[in-house]
C-alpha cells in the first residue's frame, strides 16, 4: 500500500446514533493502516474541522467519503450536497445512510407529532416547557437573526438526497466488512469491488441487475448453520415467549427471523446466539422493498387456509409489522413514510 500516493478520506455523521463512527474505530489496530494509506481530511467526530475548510477544497478532491446517517435537517442536506461535490466516491456508510434505519421509523409520524412528543408531552431532554417553545429556523433577536437547521417532516436516505456510489450495509457495518471495503477502495479501486458494475455505479431505481452494495449477494440463512426444513408456520412467537431450540431454524420455530430476506455478510451473528435476525444488513440485490418481501414470504408459509385463523396467527404473532419488517428500511421503502393526513 505504501508505495501509492496517499488518498484523501473524509467521514461524516448525519442523522444516526454515532455507532457507525465507533464502528470505524472497531477495526482496531488496522485504523493505523488506514491512517497510513489516507490523509483524513475531515472527521468531525474524531478531529476538529470546520465546514468552511471543506467548502474551500477543490471539487472532487476528496477520494472517498464515508457518510453515515440519514438526512433529517437542512444542515445535513447541505453537508450531503457539499461532500458529494467534493468527493470522487461517496459511500453510504451503514444502515441510516443507506436505508434510514431507526431514525427513519419517525416517518411513521409528522414533524409536529415528533415535536409534540419532545417539547410538549415532556421527555428526558425537555422535561418542562410551559410556554410551548419549539425550535425555529429563524429567531429575531436584538443582536440579529439566529438560525437553526430546518427539521424536515420526512427523513430521507442519502441517495434520496444526492447520488451515492456505494453502500456499506449494517447497523453498524461489521468491522470485517469495513476493513474489506477500505482495502478494496485502496487496492483495486472501488469500482472493481465485490460486485461488477456493468454501467455507471449509482443505484438504479430498480437495482435488478447491478449492485453497488459492498456485501454478499445472498441472505443470512446462507451463513446460518441451523437446520432448515420446508416451512409451515402455525404460530409466531415473540422472542421472550420461548427459548428456541439451538439447532433448528428460528423461523421454523415461529420466531420472526428476518435472516431469510437480509443480505448476508454479518456471519449470521444473531442466530448464532439464539436470537432472530432483525434485518440490519438490509435487502438483498433485486429486492425493492425489504418489508414487503418479508411479508409476502411469511404470508406464503403460514400453514392455514382459514381466513379467520390466518388473521389470528398474524394479529397475535406480529403486533408491530412496521417495527418488525421495516425497522431499518422504512425511509428507503417504496412507501417511504406513513401517509400524511391532508390538511384541508
Amino acid at each position: 500500500m505504501s508505495d501509492k500516493p496517499k488518498g484523501k478520506l473524509a467521514l461524516y455523521w448525519a442523522a444516526s446514533c454515532g455507532g457507525c463512527d465507533i464502528a470505524v474505530l472497531a477495526i482496531d489496530e488496522k485504523i493505523l493502516n488506514v491512517a497510513e494509506a489516507f490523509d483524513i481530511v475531515f472527521w468531525p467526530c474524531a478531529a476538529d474541522g470546520k465546514v468552511r475548510d471543506v467548502e474551500k477544497m477543490d471539487d472532487g478532491s476528496i477520494d472517498v467519503c464515508l457518510f453515515n446517517g440519514g438526512i433529517r435537517t437542512s444542515e445535513q442536506e447541505y453537508m450531503a450536497q457539499l461532500l458529494r461535490r467534493k468527493s470522487k466516491v461517496l459511500v453510504a456508510f451503514g444502515s441510516c445512510a443507506s436505508e434510514g434505519c431507526i431514525p427513519g421509523l419517525a416517518n411513521m409520524n409528522t414533524r409536529k407529532e415528533v415535536f409534540d412528543t419532545v417539547y410538549k408531552e415532556g421527555s428526558a431532554t425537555v422535561p418542562e416547557n410551559p410556554q410551548d417553545v419549539r425550535p425555529q429556523p429563524a429567531t429575531k433577536m436584538p443582536e440579529g437573526i439566529l438560525h437553526l437547521p430546518v427539521f424536515y417532516d420526512t427523513l430521507r436516505t442519502l441517495d434520496q438526497t444526492v447520488e451515492v456510489d456505494y453502500y456499506l450495509p449494517g447497523c453498524p457495518p461489521e468491522a470485517e466488512n469495513i476493513w474489506k471495503a477500505i482495502t478494496a477502495i485502496r487496492g483495486k479501486g472501488v469500482r472493481n469491488l465485490l460486485c461488477e458494475a456493468p454501467e455507471g455505479p449509482s443505484r438504479q431505481k430498480v437495482p435488478d441487475t447491478f449492485s453497488a452494495v459492498i456485501g454478499l449477494n445472498t441472505t443470512v440463512c446462507e451463513e446460518c448453520p441451523r437446520k432448515r426444513g420446508e416451512k409451515k408456520i402455525k404460530k409466531f412467537y415473540r422472542t421472550w415467549e420461548i427459548i428456541p431450540d439451538e439447532e433448528t431454524c428460528l423461523l421454523e420455530q415461529g420466531l420472526l427471523c428476518c435472516g431469510i430476506a437480509t443480505r448476508a455478510g454479518c456471519g449470521a451473528l444473531c442466530p448464532a446466539v439464539n436470537s432472530p435476525c432483525i434485518g440490519c444488513y438490509g435487502a438483498n440485490d433485486g429486492v425493492a422493498d425489504f418489508g414487503a418481501r418479508m411479508m409476502s414470504a411469511l404470508a406464503s408459509v403460514i400453514d392455514s387456509d382459514d381466513p379467520d385463523e390466518i388473521r389470528r396467527i398474524i394479529e397475535e404473532g406480529i403486533p408491530d409489522p412496521v417495527g418488525s419488517f421495516y425497522r431499518f428500511s422504512l425511509a428507503a421503502s417504496q412507501l417511504r413514510r406513513k401517509k400524511k393526513m391532508q390538511i384541508a
Binding site: 441487475t209 441472505t219 429486492v287
Partner: peptide, 22 residues
C-alpha cells in the same frame, strides 16, 4: 407464486421480472 415469495429476491419470472414490471 415463488417469485413473489422468495425473500432473497433470487427467483426471477421470465418476462415478468421486477425491472419490466416497475
Amino acid at each position: 407464486t415463488c417469485v413473489a415469495a422468495c425473500p432473497a429476491g433470487v427467483i426471477t419470472g421470465a418476462h415478468f421480472n421486477n425491472e419490466q414490471i416497475f
